[in-house]
Design a protein around this nucleic acid. Structure first.
Length: 282
DNA sequence: CGACTCTCCTGGGTGC
DNA sequence: TGCACCCAGGAGAGTC
């Protein structure tokens, strides 16, 4: 499942392949992949050059020449942006294909579960207009830890729900939320308004550390659904402390990791290091 | 505005 | 072997 480190791996892989190249043809093979796009993507992209590859949180975009807009992508759960030779056969779940005027490798958006999407959208300052409501991610210079802590403390919800709220902090998904909370020794249902500023700083530090480590190992992958632009999986799943490790020993204290249902998904935590608060909220 | 739920999707795994 | 389920969620839309 692509979260910030996985999307960053894709961005880094993509930028060296696409910067400066001109799109000869864009082909949409599944309408759902462009459901947020206004107009015809193929017409909007034909003849445009890609300037670079940028990212905020889990969103990735390719600024385009001849206008102040960009090709924006979100990988959803199973989306991939692959760089492959133009003659290679269509992938089973190929949704959008970009061919280039230089005859070099295609960029292909492949997505089994179609939660991901791509669209051409105008920029609003430094980010695409349609993601202006997303908060900076914790690796951006403009991310303000004090503002983040204030906003967390004003919420009336559980800390994990707040971490997953992309308007408070972007880039954190289910995996790294669980890992950050384990590092900060906090239960996911801890009410946000009961957290001290230092404790919020611990969570933020945990999130930054675990995502930095994951990035260093090429991201996390549990199966072949998340891959970099060359189709390779990351190795960070070997380093996860709690996510997906029900009944395995906590790396810190040895207590078996528990799995709890939360928002129609799973939360993994250590019962001893992360005791459930009496005033749990979610 | 904030809190929360519902919904979209496919294929691998599981139990009978 | 077949089939009915369950599960993985990110985030926009909608409700209150």
């Amino acid at each position: 499942m692509p979260e910030l480190p996985e999307v960053e791996v894709v961005r880094r892989g993509l930028v060296r392949w696409v910067a400066g190249r001109t799109i000869a043809e864009a082909e949409v093979l599944h309408p759902r992949a462009v459901r947020r796009n206004e107009g015809l993507l193929a017409d909007q992209l034909k003849g445009r050059a890609i300037r670079s590859a940028e990212r905020r949180g889990k969103y990735l975009w390719l600024p385009l020449s001849d206008g102040d807009d960009a090709l924006l992508a979100h990988l959803g759960m199973s989306g991939q942006l692959l760089v492959v030779p133009p003659e290679s056969p269509a992938e089973k779940h190929l949704r959008v294909r970009l061919a280039f005027t230089d005859g070099g490798p295609d960029v292909r958006f492949v997505d089994q579960r179609t939660f991901g999407h791509v669209l051409v959208t105008p920029m609003a300052g430094n980010v695409p207009k349609v993601i202006a409501h997303i908060a900076p991610d914790p690796f951006e210079p403009v991310f303000d830890a004090a503002i983040f802590a204030d906003r967390i403390r004003k919420r009336r919800t559980g800390i994990k729900r707040a971490l997953l709220d992309q308007s408070l902090i972007s880039g954190v998904g289910n995996i790294y939320a669980d890992e950050a909370l384990w590092r900060a020794r906090l239960h996911w249902a801890r009410p946000t308004e009961t957290l001290s500023r230092p404790k919020i700083a611990d969570v933020l530090a945990g999130a930054r550390e675990v995502m930095t480590e994951a990035l260093g190992q090429g991201g996390t992958s549990f199966d072949s659904l998340y891959v970099n632009v060359n189709g390779e999986s990351g190795y960070f799943d070997r380093s996860l402390a709690v996510y997906g490790r029900r009944d395995e020993p906590c790396p810190r204290c040895g207590t078996p990791i528990r799995r709890e249902a939360f928002m129609n998904r799973s939360s993994y935590s250590c019962p001893k290091c992360q005791p459930r608060p009496r005033n749990a909220r979610w």
